[in-house]
């Protein structure tokens, strides 16, 4: 998570207007859902990976790390789609060739979709996405919640890590049972600190005139029409070629 955040704040495309990244990535995400996956999926996956690594300059390793978790789920889950089960006179199961296709299609489609999201999270600081969703009319309460969670995740992650290091220093994880005990203690401690944190944060916010709305200034980013149009043209070309390839295949 720290790595994702780091690249989101430091990549070459960080200062682009979020629309220039969200619109193409969003359109491609929709395309992965409507186009035949086996033709369009690899194209979309490849182009998103290309944009992330060569465009925005995020290391390939970081991208693979982001894709690894969903990919692992797919590898574990997809084979079950290839199994057909029948309960007629007892329990039977067998591999089905249709199922294999379905599993393959699902995997490719899901990976392509995840690559769109990975591109977005690795190249766009969350604050930009928040500012954009505010403009798109997402309710203020929800946005404030996201904003606070984004801030506090790091506060608590830091405390959790320090807490665990301190426990380890006193051999808190020397055996499995002691480890369980330590984790429990750490969780309880963090919960208590979270409650206190909330109380003190309320005092701090009230001291600065908080009356129920967390309004802040947002950095203005200039929208570049050439970049946006390039992105949309790219999406159009990918969509078209995915569609043609898909038609040729079937």
């Amino acid at each position: 998570m720290r790595a994702i955040d780091h690249y989101a704040w430091s990549n070459r495309w960080r200062d682009w207007h979020p629309t220039e990244k969200l619109l193409p990535a969003g359109c491609l995400l929709i395309l992965t859902l409507v186009l035949p996956p086996l033709s369009s999926g690899p194209l979309i996956l490849a182009s998103m990976a290309w944009a992330t690594v060569y465009g925005a300059g995020v290391p390939m390793r970081a991208l693979l790390q982001v894709l690894a978790a969903p990919a692992a789920f797919l590898v574990m889950g997809a084979p079950f789609l290839a199994v057909s089960i029948s309960f007629a006179d007892g329990f039977h199961w067998q591999w089905s060739s249709e199922g294999w296709w379905l599993a393959l299609e699902t995997t490719v489609r899901a990976l392509a979709a995840v690559s769109c999201l990975a591109f977005l999270t690795l190249t766009t600081p969350l604050t930009d996405l928040i500012a954009l969703s505010r403009r798109l009319g997402v309710p203020a309460g929800l946005i404030e919640l996201v904003q606070l969670v984004y801030r506090l995740i790091f506060v608590f992650a830091e405390r959790a890590i320090t807490g665990q290091q301190a426990q380890t220093a006193r051999l808190g994880y020397v055996r499995f049972d002691r480890g369980l005990h330590s984790v429990g203690g750490l969780a309880g401690n963090l919960f208590q600190r979270a409650l206190h944190q909330a109380q003190r944060m309320e005092i701090g916010l009230a001291a600065r005139g908080y009356t129920g709305e967390l309004r802040v200034l947002n950095t203005e980013r200039a929208l570049s029409w050439p970049r946006l149009m390039t992105g949309i043209t790219w999406v159009g070309l990918l969509g078209l070629s995915g569609w043609i390839l898909g038609r040729g295949g079937s």
């Binding site: 904003q147 606070l148 309004r215 802040v216």
Partner: peptide, 26 residues
């Protein structure tokens, strides 16, 4: 104006500029 001892109790916004702008906007 009151500044708390622990800055993490006070800073709530994602960027420095945003956080500092909170009071003036209020």
């Amino acid at each position: 104006g009151l500044v708390l001892q622990e800055p993490d109790d006070q800073l709530f916004a994602a960027t420095v500029e945003q956080d500092v702008s909170f009071g003036p906007l209020n």
